[in-house]
Computed example of a mutant assay.
Amino acid sequence: MDRRKFLAGTATLGTGAALAAPALGQSRTQLNIVNLWSEGSEGRGAILSAVAARVSGLSGGQLTITVTNGAGQAADAALSGADGVVGAEEAWMGKSAAFGLMTSTPGGLVERELEAFIRQENGQALWDALSAAHGMKSFYLGDTGAEYLWAQTVPGDVSAFSGASVAARGLAARLYTALGANVTTPAMNVVAPGGAAFAETGPLADQQQAGMGGLNKVALGTITRPSAAVSLTLKSAAWNGLNETQQRILTAATTAQSHITAAEALKRNALAQQILRLTGAAEVTTLNEDVFHAMMPAARDVLNGLASDGAEAAALVDGYKRFGEAVQSWTRVSEAPFATNRRRSFSA
């Protein structure tokens, strides 16, 4: 493929406009971006390096990203000394709890629905407005899939969470707190925290590889983490310092990566589930429907409570809810019945 023809407009990768070829002799721009995930050859830890390679290739080296390992750092501290960070938007909930919507929302959008909200509805614009109010600009880098509840004993009643130790992040942590749990929030790169009776702290693939210690049961179909979006967040000054071509290149690179992230996560999580079942390393089950439904009122309260964080947060919550009402009705009559009937057919 001829790189200049590509950049001149043979592919836009969702940017809405053709990319201009970088001019020879153009000044080079370097972004220093911190990776809040543990570095690795696959999964979340590999995303930033992949974006950096794609950006350099598309720009002919005119725009480059220096990757800094910041696993275990707090997002604010990492961003203060860099141009940006790769992590999850729930890391910014100290600025506005509404950022949690763009990672995972209890009882909310699953990964495909969340991407549709961002790409095809007004989700990106609403997200941009919230981010700009805090001096940031964020990009969706894909989703590593729903996260599930690891436990010593799978709860048969919602009261099991009251007084129990739970490791959770983001809006899920708020839900468990509302249910009376003693919640701890591990660092973003920690997938297997010790000492908790319940944990929802990472993709199934990463947890299967790490092992979950004394938590040897995993309940699928939980309400709390229906998605787990990954994001790149830049300082507004870093984003505004890029020229138009560089901004389009970065947007194209992150859009392309989002598809790869989702595809890889589907494969890795499916294989992890099979390994757990075949090896007996953990008992794989499904959360009781009664427990799911008993948690829903608290999940709605968590969502509705986000609107009090200012005008930008209120607008994002309103847009999220409106889109959710429409898209979930379609998921219910399209994908869900097919998946149910397919499962019955294969098991017959």
Rank of each mutant, 00 (worst) to 15 (best):
A78N: 02
A52W: 05
E312I: 03
S138K: 07
H134G: 06
P186Q: 12
D76L: 13
D309M: 00
M296H: 10
E264H: 14
S258Q: 08
T153P: 08
L36S: 00
V154S: 02
A205D: 05
S334K: 02
T233H: 11
G100M: 01
R112Q: 08
V284F: 05
A168D: 14
G87P: 03
A348P: 04
A339N: 05
G40Y: 02
L36G: 04
S329N: 08
F346A: 15
L234P: 09
G87I: 07
Q274R: 05
L242D: 00
S347V: 14
G87N: 10
N216K: 12
L101E: 00
S27C: 04
G170R: 11
A11I: 06
L232V: 04
Q124I: 04
T105Q: 12
R54D: 15
T144L: 07
L19G: 04
A339Q: 01
Q274F: 03
R343V: 12
T12P: 12
T255E: 11
P226I: 01
A98K: 09
I249F: 00
S345R: 09
G60Y: 07
A98G: 13
A52D: 00
L215W: 06
T245K: 05
L306D: 08
L175E: 05
E113L: 02
A314T: 10
L48W: 14
G194Q: 13
L63S: 06
V317W: 09
K217E: 14
D157I: 00
N122S: 15
T233A: 15
K235W: 01
W150M: 06
A298C: 01
A17K: 01
E335M: 13
R119W: 07
L114M: 13
V34N: 06
S49D: 05
S162V: 07
D290I: 10
S308K: 15
A294V: 02
V85F: 00
T222P: 06
